[in-house]
Computed example of a mutant assay.
Amino acid sequence: MLSYQHIYHAGNLADVQKHMLLAHVLDYLAQKDKPLTYIETHAGRGLYDLGSDEALKTAEAASGIALLEPRIRADHPYRRRLAEVRARFGARAYPGSPLIAALSLRDMDSQHLSELHPQEYEALRRNLHDFPVTFRKEDGFQRALALTPPMPRRGLLLCDPSYEVKEDYATIPRHFAAIARKWNVGILMLWYPILTSGAHEEMLAILERNHPDALRHEVRFPPVREGHRMIGSGMFVVNPPYGTEAALAEIDALFRGVV
Rank of each mutant, 00 (worst) to 15 (best):
R73W: 15
R45Q: 08
I231D: 05
Q142R: 14
P240W: 01
I187W: 03
A177P: 06
R256I: 10
L124R: 02
D75V: 15
A55F: 02
L188D: 02
Y78E: 05
Q111F: 03
P95M: 08
R216F: 11
N210V: 08
P98R: 02
W191H: 02
N127M: 11
A214S: 12
L56S: 10
D213Y: 09
H228E: 10
I251Y: 01
L128G: 00
I100Y: 00
P132M: 08
D109M: 08
G11H: 01
A214T: 04
D160G: 02
A249M: 13
F131Y: 07
Y78H: 07
A144D: 04
F221K: 00
V85R: 02
A93R: 00
Q17T: 04
E60T: 06
A249I: 12
V259A: 09
Y192V: 03
A59R: 07
R92F: 06
P70G: 14
I72G: 03
T41E: 02
R126P: 03
E122R: 13
L195H: 05
L21N: 01
E54F: 03
A101W: 00
L124H: 03
G51N: 12
E202K: 11
Q5R: 12
E245T: 09
Y8F: 12
G257A: 15
A43L: 03
Y78W: 06
Y94F: 07
T134E: 14
R216I: 10
H200E: 07
Y121F: 13
L145M: 13
L195T: 02
P193C: 07
R126C: 13
A253M: 12
A146D: 15
D75P: 12
P77G: 08
C159M: 03
H24M: 14
R86H: 05
L56V: 08
V25N: 03
A91F: 07
H24V: 06
K182I: 14
R88E: 13
D109S: 10
G51S: 09
A249Q: 15
Y28P: 05
